[in-house]
Amino acid sequence: MEPVIIGLVLGGLYALLAQSFVLTFITTRTLNFALGEFVALGAFATLAVASWGWLPDVGKVVVGVLVAGVVGAFVHRFLILPFTTQGEHDVRWLLSSVAVSFVLLDLITNVEGPSPQRSDTARVSGTVDLFGTGVSKQQLLLATLAVVISLLLILVTKRTPMGLVMRAVSQDPETASLMGVSPRRVGMGAYAAAMGLAGLAGVLYAATVGASPVMGEPLLVASIAVAIVGGLGSLWGPLLGGALYGVLSQFASYQWGTIWGETAGLLLVIAVLVWKPEGLLGRRTEVKL
């Protein structure tokens, strides 16, 4: 039981970040490989205002979210969007987002130094007992947030005009522009929201492991894996993927040791993709001649 509970809770963090991948993918068909650096960016932005006594903790968290979100919007506008113009085979955006990751990582390291710094904002200490397993409140908070935010996003896309616009833009941005919708703004909005999410995850995660430039790196591969297992096109996907990935990797590391935890998780991705390339909840698109 214990690995299941811990795994589910851990999966929450991955799910939150995976949601960020899904959000940019369903609107712009791109993924931000610099996501790990946005996690760090959020954490450090909050850390930078941590000493402002007049600002309540919530405000400090918001600063982290906003900084990551605004930088994210700019990255989309100037470094992703220009590299998506050559149709579906165009993957220059992928290379450019990897390059952004190099630049941000290097810059953060040079400014803040490589070692982790203690971050107390938004720290919730203590544990709760969940079906006989002690779970840290901080991680439980992350997992709860992941679920709540996912449900909110699903509600927005299914029920609101904004959601309709998002779905339309994701299917055909050019035609959407003929309907009076600016795909550029929708894309920037999606990136702002997605990177804001990454920043939020960074602030909360930094409270447990400290803020460091490389704090997002191990999360990147895991959360991208989660997003793919669930299906990049589905907002439910991260929840399912996060749960599966979290439980499986916890279980494997209990049984065979830490290194097998992550390996098992990544092998899960390969297995799922071989079986269903569009992910467990993804929708298959037919190729028409």
Binding site: P161, L164, V165, R167, A168, Q171, D172, E174, T175, A176, M179, V181, R283
Partner: peptide, 14 residues
Amino acid sequence: KLFPQLTVGENIAM
């Protein structure tokens, strides 16, 4: 160039 995965109604709403 209809939005392929939207319904007819949603296309017209767009």
